[in-house]
Design a protein around this nucleic acid. Sequence first.
DNA 1: TAGCCATTAAACAGCA
DNA 2: GTGCTGTTTAATGGCT
Length: 672
Amino acid sequence: MMVESASETIRSAPAGQNGGVGSLSGQADGGSGSGTAGTAPAAGRDGSSRDTASGADSNGEMSSTELLQFQQQQALQVARQFLLQQASSLNSPGNNDSKQSASAVQVPVSVAMMPQQILTPQQMQQILSPPQLQALLQQQQALMLQQLQEYYKKQQEQLHLQILTQQQAGKQQPKEALGNKQLAFQQQLLQMQQLQQQHLLNLQRQGLVNLQPSQASGPLQALPQAVCPTDLPQLWKGEGAPGQPAEDSVRQEGLDLASTAATATSFASPPKVSPPLSHHPLPNGQPTVLTSRRDSSSHEETPSSHPLYGHGECKWPGCETLCEDLGQFIKHLNTEHALDDRSTAQCRVQMQVVQQLEIQLAKESERLQAMMAHLHMRPSEPKPFSQPVTVSADPFPDGLVHPPTSAAAPVTPLRPPGLGSASLHSGGPARRRSSDKFCSPISSELAQNHEFYKNADVRPPFTYASLIRQAILETPDRQLTLNEIYNWFTRMFAYFRRNTATWKNAVRHNLSLHKCFVRVENVKGAVWTVDEREYQKRRPPKMTGSPTLVKNMISGLSYGALNASYQAALAESSFPLLSSPGMLNPGSASSLLPLSQDDMGAPGEPLPSNGSSSPPRLSPPQYSHQVQVKEEPAEAEEDRRPGPPLGAPNPSTVGPPEDRDLEEDLPGEDMS
DNA sequence: TAGCCATTAAACAGCA
DNA sequence: GTGCTGTTTAATGGCT
């Protein structure tokens, strides 16, 4: 049962995941995002069905292997979610990496099986440090592969013994008895077939195999040796009508079965591949075969639930014969799909497929390891924060240890040990927002994955506000026109080269909505600047109303006493000074807030001080330059405190009169 | 459950 | 009239 619950949780993760990636992804991810909410429950049922399936197995040996199978499934599920998260930053249609990142065994089985603390991949990442995660993944990967191999080997041996027994018995027993035995055997074959199918489907869900008819050119085809399951239907059908020998066609495929001949010679389950799968895919991409798995064990009770029988037709690959009921189907199965050369050949093909997939799985796992190492293990690299991407702004005068930079794999270094992972801020689905705030500093992330975002059609895991700010801060004068912001988006992110209407509108919306973005006019016309103070005010929203927390955050910052997440958040906020251990002045954060290095040094800046003449929503003093505000009378002094702390640009000038963000309740006292 | 936040969509107005 | 820019509102979903 715990497996089941874990399964449900894991399977429901996509909703969150989609929420995370999808939230930013919007239309781009709409496909998966829209479906996930609805599919989550179904997926949960799916998981339970598989659970019962194993339990219903009458074969004692099978039940143990079924358990193993379950573990594999669970691991694969977690892996899938995990990889989806990874893929949120890696995935793109044109990106080879994304296709190949879908390896399954990256996820710790043990973690996946955790009974109480059901972990999402993100949570796993948060709990484990990158090295730990890496090690765990490798370990589990090896374990899983080993388990898979052992499992199939076991199955094959078992079937081998049975068929030998049956063949011997068949010589002596009357035909009727033989028929019964054969039926039972066939059902056992089907069970194994189901198990193998499970594996295959898991791989499919990983993205290793794509059964979508429209995507016939799935990743597997890229494999030199892999047998693409999408080709299997043709392969089956290519054999001609049922009953026609398949050996030839199999041989023509050039499949070398020698490696498996020892165990696969005459048995192995008949593959049940693409045809049934493509016919009845579930919303979540899982073929109905998955759900029918439970049926496979109970099809005696429920007539229409034979794994090879669905929707009134035989689902034997390439068959699709209509059968009114299960009885007729069984009859059909025994006559048309009896144990013969053809079925054997089909089994061989399927085994070959599985083998290839396993090989590919290992390969892809290795690739993923490398990718993860690249994305997560960067700390080893000297990370000068004079990042190429970051022109002048937002350098992290580091002293801070920047968290791993994978947007898709936010890491929350510190976490209360006993805390349920799910209860943490970013414990749930990797909402971009979360990663944005608590994990990866955007500039760091961008610097490290600049090329990736540039080329991969992956939505960046940052809020629009963060991106806009980053765009602005990257410019020498820290101001951009709207069009320049657009250009920055498209230049920096392949993702934003499409859906322009959506994200441009969002950009405009964000510019208008957040008062941290100040519109000013200069010679170029209207430009947008960032009011760091305002921006920072909205940064730690979680701490709103908890001045103590804010204080702690600030004071602990860079002293290692505080959650590194906050450090990351602050770093991301480009508080150079705050981020700098040496410069940090606990308790006087506000003094640091508005200024960036360059700004502080800019003498000529006509800080639109003190509101009197200060433009309304303008004035991030630090960025104001010679610009003059174009709109709104300087009416509001707001409720600012009189004394701008520490050289801080006059905060009073910052606020727009109308308060787009309503952050006035911000713990100003603490900040000043 | 309510509130907050981010995103998306849309309507509208001003301007070139 | 068209397109861009900017503002605003509403709906939605995730998170706390």
